[in-house]
Design a protein around this nucleic acid. Structure first.
Lengths: 343, 343
DNA sequence: CTGAAAGCGCTTACAG
DNA sequence: CTGAAAGCGCTTACAG
């Protein structure tokens, strides 16, 4: 490891002191213009790059946002990160990223690690299995901003950005019904996760409103990816033909696509025999055939707003008491998988 | 911002000194077992979390890897990041991520920022437009590991991980020819980018080997995304029917899919009239219909290996002279878009 | 077995 | 307009 240039090196080269160099570089009015010029030129020519760790240790500010997501490698989350990064880089902040891999233990470890690394706060999409929130205590206790994005704690008043999953689910369910579906299957996720709870509630309320039966054999609460979507579809196929669904409400696009492949392999025509709606509007939803109708969650926008919220919280007198909640509009994007009648 | 617990606080609570607390926490054999126990218990109960910035300022080691990619929000890059993160988190390292958005200027700014933040080194997928590498000087100069991943500097001996783009391109081109294609279009990327240069070379060499003409009207060197793929396809459609291609070699999956949509809208049957091969084996390649044949670039594995290389470089006596290059195997995944004859 | 002191690279009250 | 000194939170030679 070679030695790096420090302000002391610059000071020595100019026969002045570190104090003066520091001030000159910061553009302090206390330093004369000629000195400023000389310092800057010297810093430039020596290839000086300030040591952010020393600065942050001294000032307590670090220009670092910790971001924790279940997985980097999913369109939804990487778009959120994209949104966060867009605002952050604008403000001169860097982001440090950790994957919880939907494991609370890893999430907890990441919170600690990031706190150690003295991030200026955290933006978090909760792991699928997270139902207790004690591991965020160090952040709250130290008064750092903590913003949740999309997957947020249930029954807890904390700053967050999300979409109105309940309303979104309602619009999706109503759409299926208007397409003529009567026996609608529900492939959802664990109800302890806020968003899945809301989606199911929206679905159930609409079914009730239209006086349609919710058929237990067609309801699955652990079908949140491609494989599990396939598995649930296979279970449905084990029913008698007369009990087959004519509609599918899936809580994730991957679920919907998994189910689509199985149903089509088994002779279902989509949307004629079975209308399918997904959730999330992942890029692939528009590439499969037929395209999957889906709820657009404005993932980039969610990240973007969460990042803005972060900086707002930071400015507030006590960030740990900052509890602004933003709900972004969502919209149903209708595609071939549920379009029996042109709109 | 509330006050954080420091080793001094623990020391005071136990009527001892910071030195002892530091040693006890580090498990130094110089401290007695009873004192260690007391220190650990107190640290635990006070909710002590070490300040990594202070540690790294003192020790010069920081447990931070800087990662620069063109875009987070693409399956290929996010898989690479996933691979990097997997190794890093195993070793107790965090990663800090920046998006160059394929802009050299932003890439340069990110290198500086990250160096400022005193990362322990960098793993980089170059921006599309990067053809000079001076902005990596601060990293080299300070002797930090710098590993390139997939998109690497041309004509420069630096540590890197990539696949053999040349061979991969050859296998893809040969496959098209074996499917009976004779007039093969080429939709590529800027040749100053290593990988695109190699892919084109592979394509040209195979065409030459089989004595097939490379038709200038069917060659495009700036078609590296969905829209540009569509645009290039439209230009091809402006040719006379007799000049239409019967095969398409695309240097990106998005290119291939963009072209696919345009060609099909214009009555081309794929693969009967036109065989298409993409590159990258993005997730969507398998979801479109017909599926796009593509070169699997083992993106996760590339990131994984780059991360391992990083730690190897770090251990070497002079990381800036560490120039191990790893070439991973790639393979052609054949799907409907190019399968005229079953294999 | 434990402590006092220096120092990593900065910034900033304090002093002149 | 500029400098000397303290201190952010640690670790680690040096000393006992």
């Amino acid at each position: 490891m070679k030695k790096n240039i420090t302000i002391r090196d610059i000071a020595e080269a100019l026969h002045t002191t570190p104090s003066t160099v520091s001030r000159a570089l910061a553009g302090s009015p206390r330093i004369g213009e000629s000195m400023k010029g000389a310092v800057r030129a010297m810093a430039e020519s020596m290839g000086y790059i300030p040591n952010a760790r020393a600065v942050s240790l001294r000032t307590g500010k670090g220009s670092l946002i910790g971001v924790i997501v279940p997985s980097i490698n999913r369109d939804f989350f990487s778009s959120i990160i994209d949104g966060i990064e867009s605002v952050a880089s604008e403000k001169g902040y860097n982001i440090i990223i950790g994957q919880s891999r939907d494991d609370v233990e890893r999430e907890k470890a990441l919170v600690d690690e990031m706190f150690r690394g003295r991030v200026d706060g955290l933006i978090v999409c909760l792991a699928y299995t997270t139902s207790k929130y004690d591991h965020f205590m160090p952040i709250w206790r130290s008064g750092l901003p903590l913003i949740f994005c999309d997957r947020s704690p249930k029954n807890l008043t904390t700053a967050r950005v999300n979409i109105d999953d309940y309303q979104a689910a309602r619009s999706s369910a109503e759409h299926l019904i208007k397409q003529g579906c009567r026996r609608i299957a529900f492939f959802g996720g664990a109800e302890n996760v806020d968003v899945f709870f809301e989606r199911k509630k929206g679905f159930l309320d609409v079914m009730h409103k239209y006086g349609l039966p919710v058929i237990p054999d067609l309801v699955y609460d652990d079908a949140i990816n491609f494989e599990k979507g396939q598995a649930a579809a296979r279970k449905v196929l084990a029913l008698k033909k007369s009990e087959y669904p004519d509609g599918l409400f899936a809580c994730e696009d991957y679920t919907a696509i998994g189910a689509l492949t199985v149903f089509r392999e088994n002779g279902f025509r989509v949307p004629e025999d079975l209308c399918i709606c997904g959730f999330g509007n992942e890029e692939i939803a528009s590439y499969v055939s037929p395209g999957i109708s889906s709820i657009d969650q404005s993932s980039f926008e969610q990240g973007y707003q969460a990042s803005l919220l972060f900086f707002e919280a930071q400015k507030s007198s006590d960030p740990s008491k900052f509890t602004t909640m933003i709900t972004l509009p969502s919209r149903l994007v209708i595609r071939g998988s549920s379009m029996r009648h042109p709109l």
